[in-house]
Amino acid sequence: MADALVVLKNTVKKRLHPVFIEVDRGASNNKFDKVAKYTVYYQSKAWVNKWWAQPSPDGVYQFPRVLVVTDRQEQINKILKEENMAKIRFTVVTLEDIQRDVYLYI
Rank of each mutant, 00 (worst) to 15 (best):
M1Y: 12
A2P: 02
D3A: 04
A4P: 08
A4M: 13
A4V: 00
L5G: 01
V7H: 07
K9Y: 11
N10F: 05
V12S: 15
V12F: 03
V12K: 03
K13F: 14
K13S: 15
K14H: 13
R15M: 09
R15V: 10
L16G: 04
L16C: 01
H17M: 13
H17K: 14
H17W: 14
P18Q: 03
P18T: 00
P18L: 00
V19R: 10
V19Y: 13
V19L: 15
F20A: 05
F20K: 03
I21H: 01
E22I: 12
D24E: 10
D24C: 03
D24M: 04
R25H: 06
R25L: 11
R25I: 08
A27T: 03
A27F: 04
A27Y: 07
S28I: 02
S28Y: 01
N29H: 12
N30C: 08
N30E: 13
F32A: 00
K34D: 05
K34V: 03
V35D: 03
V35S: 01
V35Y: 07
A36R: 08
K37A: 09
K37N: 12
Y38N: 02
T39R: 08
T39D: 06
T39V: 11
T39H: 05
T39F: 12
V40A: 11
V40F: 06
V40L: 08
V40S: 10
V40R: 08
Y41T: 05
Y42C: 01
Y42D: 06
S44I: 02
S44M: 05
K45E: 13
K45L: 13
W47G: 00
V48G: 00
N49M: 14
K50D: 15
W51R: 14
W52G: 00
P55D: 06
S56C: 08
P57L: 05
D58H: 09
V60L: 12
V60I: 08
Q62Y: 14
F63D: 01
P64V: 00
R65Y: 13
R65L: 15
V66S: 02
V66L: 06
L67N: 01
L67I: 09
V68H: 00
V69S: 05
V69F: 02
T70W: 01
T70L: 01
D71N: 06
D71F: 00
E74I: 05
E74T: 09
Q75K: 10
Q75N: 15
I76D: 01
N77R: 07
N77G: 11
I79P: 00
I79T: 09
L80D: 03
K81L: 10
K81G: 15
E82G: 04
E82A: 02
E82L: 03
E83R: 09
E83G: 10
N84V: 02
N84E: 05
M85K: 12
M85C: 13
M85I: 15
A86S: 03
K87Q: 07
K87D: 13
K87E: 07
K87P: 04
I88N: 02
I88T: 02
I88V: 01
F90K: 06
T91C: 14
T91V: 14
V93N: 05
V93L: 10
L95C: 09
L95Y: 10
E96G: 09
D97C: 11
D97R: 06
Q99S: 15
R100C: 13
V102P: 10
V102N: 07
Y103R: 14
L104W: 09
L104E: 15
L104Y: 13
I106G: 07
